[in-house]
Computed example of a mutant assay.
Amino acid sequence: MSSNTKLDTDVVKASATALGRIMDDMSAFTALRADWPKLGNFDLATQLDAIVDDRRRGVVAHADQLKTALDEMDRALTKIATEIQSIDDGAAAKINAVVADLRTRVRDDLAALSQV
């Protein structure tokens, strides 16, 4: 059973960049990061403040985690694509060197045969 795997490293790199840019604009979370005014000094207002603050901080934390995860995916996919491209380029260079050496040897052998 043979396998034919192809990878377009340019597409992987472009996808990685697109992933990394998803959370570039964090301005939607700026207002959530600031301290909000308190609702009041009575018990129910204090409880509601605590709940709202907890949810607000949770949303901001999730946004930060998502940004971090997407940035890491960007870096990882770019590194993988670059390394695969480097391996392919290195293998191609080695194959080209072998073919060039073979051509030289065949040319030399043919030249030697023609002198006999």
Rank of each mutant, 00 (worst) to 15 (best):
K13Q: 14
D24F: 01
R107H: 07
L44P: 03
T9W: 09
D54M: 02
F29T: 12
S2R: 01
I80C: 02
T82S: 09
A81D: 03
T30S: 15
Q85I: 00
Q47H: 07
M73T: 08
L32D: 05
A91G: 07
N96H: 09
A31E: 13
V11A: 15
R75M: 08
D8A: 09
L48V: 15
T68A: 11
R105M: 01
L110V: 11
V99R: 11
L110R: 13
S27L: 08
D25C: 10
D24N: 15
K94F: 00
L77T: 05
D64Q: 11
K38F: 01
D108Y: 03
L102A: 05
L77H: 10
A45T: 09
A63F: 00
R75D: 10
Q47G: 08
D35N: 14
A45L: 07
A112H: 05
L44S: 12
V52A: 05
Q85T: 05
Q115T: 02
D49Q: 12
T17G: 06
V98L: 13
I22L: 14
L66F: 06
D8C: 06
D49R: 08
R55G: 04
F29M: 15
D71E: 08
S86T: 14
A16K: 13
L7C: 11
R107G: 13
S2T: 04
A111H: 10
D74T: 05
F42K: 12
R56F: 00
I80Q: 02
T5K: 12
L102R: 10
K79Y: 01
D43I: 11
Q47I: 10
A61R: 14
L66V: 06
A34H: 09
I51V: 14
A111Q: 11
V52D: 03
W36E: 04
T78P: 11
